[in-house]
Amino acid sequence: MRMRAVTRLPGLALALAAALVFAVAGAAPASAYAPVNIVHTERVTAGPYVVTIGFSVWPLHAMQSLDFTFVPDGGIADKSGGLFLEGPDMPPHEKAQPLARHPRKRDVWGLDVRALPIQGDWNFGFAIDGPLGHGEGALAAPVAVLPQPGPPLALSWSITVIPVALLVLFVVIAWRRVRPGALVGHHLE
């Protein structure tokens, strides 16, 4: 019978899933994460503290993600504080955030694979609390973020809507075949 082979599909799907699981499970996930390589630094004075900002990519381009590290002289062990980001069209509620350890470099504060979305001048500021008391400060000169690499966003979004366009085409064809408007009737059944 025609459907007999179709009923064997669960076995096929399980085999496929198992093959994928074994293929990926062997990839040793923890060791697969890239190290944080700093290629450029800037210094910020925040009261009695000096913080070194590290960038894993330089120069910066809009939308291009990178790792940031924030390292106060003497380390982070006895300190806490906040990061203030100021840039074009930055939503107010995203400007301030507590300083957190970098997920792949736990001995420093940082941001992992973070992109600055818009080109222009961006500034980094810090409020640090530590053994020398409270200190605040920002970069003397903001960091210039260059235009985004790659094709214009309009082109990328045009490609994105291709699935929607195909779906709309499908619906239009089906609409013309079925003509549902004529079947709505005068009463709900």
């Binding site: 990519v57 939308m63 291009q64 993600s65 990178l66 694979v113 973070r114 992109a115 690499p149 790659g150 966003l153 990328s156 979004w157 490609i159 994105t160």
Partner: peptide
Amino acid sequence: LYGFDAVLDSPP
């Protein structure tokens, strides 16, 4: 091109 950004709403 853009790195492993964890941005939900990128075009792809």
